[in-house]
Amino acid sequence: MNRAALASVLALIWASITGNFSLPNLILGGAISLLALWLVRKDVSSPHYFRKFRLAGSLTLLFFYELLLSASRVAILVLSPNLKEKLQPGIIAFPLTAKSDVEITLLANLITLTPGTLSVDVSPDKKKLYVHALSVPDKQALIDDIAKGFEAKIIEVFE
């Protein structure tokens, strides 16, 4: 059984035993179950599962962090008085390394929710992803940023 599923079941049991289904209590239950699973990790599940789970977890964390960052950054940009000068929008073609449909979909969605970028279209041969960006001072830097950040992580999870 997957460690993540086991931990959530344990967290639910914790919540029902303490009779309190509040968010803080569920998180506390989850933390305690993870700690307990970590203590007995040899018998419960293989380290392979744990690694995947951790990678997916770090991807989720990265996603929420980037979402918050991008929302604040767009907000600051919108509120700045000299809006027209700061804007430097452009549509760039991002060369895709990710192959499968799931990976491309995930990447496109993540790009939309990251600072200053919005995915527009995938080329018919699935080689390029067209990305609209709020400010493109340096096209290559933006491409490197996406390739090293999200795309690398996604490929790592789905490899």
Partner: peptide
């Protein structure tokens, strides 16, 4: 802020940034 962005930004694609991220 998202609503201000929708009013202030110059074209459809830039407005979309404001609505999809900040609005969500």
């Amino acid at each position: 802020v998202a609503a201000i962005g929708i009013v202030r930004l110059p074209d459809l694609y830039t407005r979309m940034h404001s609505a999809s991220k900040v609005g969500t």
